[in-house]
C-alpha cells in the first residue's frame, strides 16, 4: 500500500517533469495525461473513489482531450528546448519560492501522523477504518450541503458565469452580424435552395 503510494507519487513527479522537458508538444500532452492518471491512482489509493473517478472523467475525459485537440490542430513543429539566460534564473526563483511555500503549508496540514507507524508495527485491526462504511459520495454531500453551502453556491455561480460567457461568444449579436456565417439546416435542405 505504502509502496504503491510512493510509486504513484514517483510516476506523477516523473511525468509532470517530462511534460516540460519533452520536445514534441504532443508528447508533453501525453505526459500530462499520464500525470493526471497517476494523480487519479493516488486518489484511489487514498480510498477517495468518487473524487478519483471524477478526476478521470473531467480532467482526462474533457480537459486533456481539448489540449490534445489544440496541439494536434495547431500543427506545431518540434520546438527547440532553449535555456534562455533570462528565463532560467527567474524560473528557478519562482519554482523555489512555490516549493518552499507548499512545503510549509504541507508541514502545517499534515503534522506527524502517528497512525502510520502504528499500522506498520502492530497487528491490531484498525476498527475505525473497518467501521467507516459510509460511501464517500454521502460524506461529500453531507459536508458540501451543510457546512460549505455558501462556497458551493459561489462555485456554481462562477461556473454559470463561464457558461454565459461561452454562450455569448456563439450567439449572434448586432456586433457580430455580417461577420458570422449563419447556417439554417432546413433552408439548406429545402428544394428551393437548389438553384
Amino acid at each position: 500500500m505504502i509502496f504503491l503510494t510512493y510509486l504513484m507519487c514517483a510516476l506523477l513527479l516523473i511525468s509532470a517533469s517530462l511534460v516540460i522537458i519533452s520536445k514534441n508538444p504532443f508528447h508533453s500532452v501525453l505526459f500530462l495525461v499520464a500525470s493526471f492518471l497517476s494523480a487519479s491512482m493516488l486518489l484511489f489509493l487514498f480510498e477517495n473513489e468518487f473524487l478519483a473517478l471524477f478526476f478521470l472523467i473531467i480532467y482526462l475525459g474533457a480537459i486533456a482531450i481539448l489540449f490534445l485537440f489544440v496541439v494536434m490542430m495547431l500543427d506545431i513543429k518540434y520546438r527547440e528546448l532553449q535555456m534562455s539566460r533570462l528565463y532560467f534564473p527567474v524560473g528557478v526563483l519562482i519554482g523555489a519560492t512555490v516549493l518552499i511555500e507548499v512545503y510549509g503549508a504541507f508541514l502545517k496540514v499534515f503534522s506527524k501522523n502517528t497512525n502510520l507507524c502504528f499500522k506498520e508495527h502492530n497487528s491490531y485491526i484498525n476498527w475505525y477504518d473497518n467501521l467507516d462504511a459510509l460511501p464517500d459520495v454521502y460524506v461529500f454531500g453531507q459536508i458540501f450541503y451543510t457546512q460549505y453551502v455558501l462556497q458551493i453556491l459561489i462555485a456554481g455561480l462562477i461556473l454559470y458565469l463561464a457558461v454565459i460567457a461561452v454562450a455569448f461568444l456563439t450567439v449572434k449579436t448586432s456586433f457580430h452580424r455580417g461577420m458570422v456565417k449563419e447556417q439554417s439546416v432546413s433552408r439548406q435542405l429545402s428544394r428551393k435552395n437548389v438553384l
Binding site: 468518487f50 473517478l53 471524477f54 478521470l56 472523467i57 475525459g61 482531450i65 460511501p135 459520495v137
Partner: peptide, 18 residues
C-alpha cells in the same frame, strides 16, 4: 459490485477517446 459503477463506466468510456 462497487458503489460508483456508473461513474466507473463513464470514466472508462471517456478514456476510450484516447
Amino acid at each position: 459490485d462497487i458503489n460508483l459503477s456508473i461513474l466507473y463506466i463513464f470514466a472508462i468510456s471517456s478514456l476510450n477517446v484516447y
